[in-house]
């Protein structure tokens, strides 16, 4: 038993799981409505876009970089797919593919600027953050694009994404599939090992033949595609695309990554941890509503939880 506990406490899943259990426990005590199927379902729905972008953010942070452009990729992707769907009446699959391709292209551009122009990822993606908000503004002319933007109004052809499959929301299914896939991929495949190696010691990784530049471009491309995925989902869910959608989501994703146990220098932590981190962030706003506290306190509570969570990634600071 002692052996089991010591093994468990050394497991990479230990801290995030402990966090989740404590958080859910506290929430359950505070509000009797928290642990109802209906409420958990609501949290999962509101967490789904965050989970998806947080997976992308996690891959980038694992290598020791950061992606601040995610929320703008999300917003611009929403505007782009809405334009193709409503204005140009493209078939659903085509506009989805093109939007995902757009996200990948943005990620590729981020990656190339970091790797070839050697500009720090913070600067590159901060630029992309503004640039893509601007792009979304220009395309949408500052107006929301929704089914009623044309007359007669026609619903989004990808409206099914905000539906259900046997009472489970499709967007939650997508978010979980993406999470499980990337968790498995980076723990069992060479590309994942390379990502951890770059986060651990970039020079050693390069020296040992790891394609460091390729890894960096890869994580940005994945991050971009996931940002676009979240953009499509969000557009379907709120039934409109707006240039200022998802403000602050990039930093929420970073928060989820830290809550999930990935230190800023990268190299440690898992995707499952990040999913738990996203869930906790979504849970906080849910709980505030359940408890009848003014939603204006949301940010303050999130801030406190995040800084407390920072305690668990301290170890990272003296690794290198």
């Amino acid at each position: 038993m002692a052996n089991f506990i010591s093994k468990l406490s050394r497991s990479v899943y230990f801290k995030p799981l402990l966090f989740l259990i404590i958080a859910v426990g506290i929430a359950g005590i505070l509000s009797p409505y928290f642990l109802t199927v209906r409420n958990i379902r609501a949290i999962l729905i509101s967490a789904a876009p965050l989970m998806i972008v947080a997976v992308g953010e996690a891959l980038v942070v694992l290598t020791g970089m950061i992606d601040l452009s995610l929320e703008s990729v999300l917003a611009s992707s929403g505007v782009i797919i809405a334009t193709m769907d409503i204005m140009w009446q493209f078939p659903s699959f085509l506009s989805i593919i093109l939007t995902l391709f757009y996200g990948g292209l943005i990620g590729f551009t981020n990656g190339i600027l970091v790797v070839k122009a050697k500009i720090p990822s913070f600067v590159v993606t901060l630029g992309m953050y503004w640039g893509l908000r601007g792009l979304a503004m220009v395309i949408s002319q500052g107006y929301p694009i929704s089914p009623s933007s044309v007359s007669p109004s026609r619903p989004f052809t990808f409206q099914w994404i905000s539906g259900n499959i046997s009472n489970i929301p499709v967007m939650v299914i997508i978010a979980l599939l993406i999470s499980v896939f990337f968790h498995y991929y980076i723990s069992e495949f060479k590309k994942g090992r390379d990502i951890y190696a770059v986060g651990g010691n970039e020079i050693a990784a390069r020296n040992c033949g790891v394609n460091v530049d390729g890894v960096k471009i890869f994580v940005f491309v994945v991050s971009g595609i996931l940002g676009a995925t979240a953009g499509i989902i969000m557009t379907s869910w709120i039934n409109q695309a707006y240039a200022w959608t998802a403000q602050g989501l990039s930093l929420q994703a970073v928060a989820a990554v830290v809550l999930g146990g990935i230190p800023f220098i990268g190299g440690f932590g898992t995707i499952i941890g990040v999913i738990i981190g996203s869930f906790i962030i979504a849970m906080i706003s849910d709980l505030i509503v359940l408890l009848g506290i003014s939603p204006l306190f949301n940010y303050i509570v999130t801030a406190i939880v995040l800084v407390l969570a920072g305690l668990q990634v301290r170890r990272g600071t003296f690794v290198k």
């Binding site: 495949f189 190696a197 651990g200 050693a204 040992c208």
Partner: peptide, 19 residues
Amino acid sequence: MLAPNLDVVANIFLGRELT
């Protein structure tokens, strides 16, 4: 030239993993 965050096996095979 080791990656401190990876285990012994991963470091021995760094960049040349069996796949």
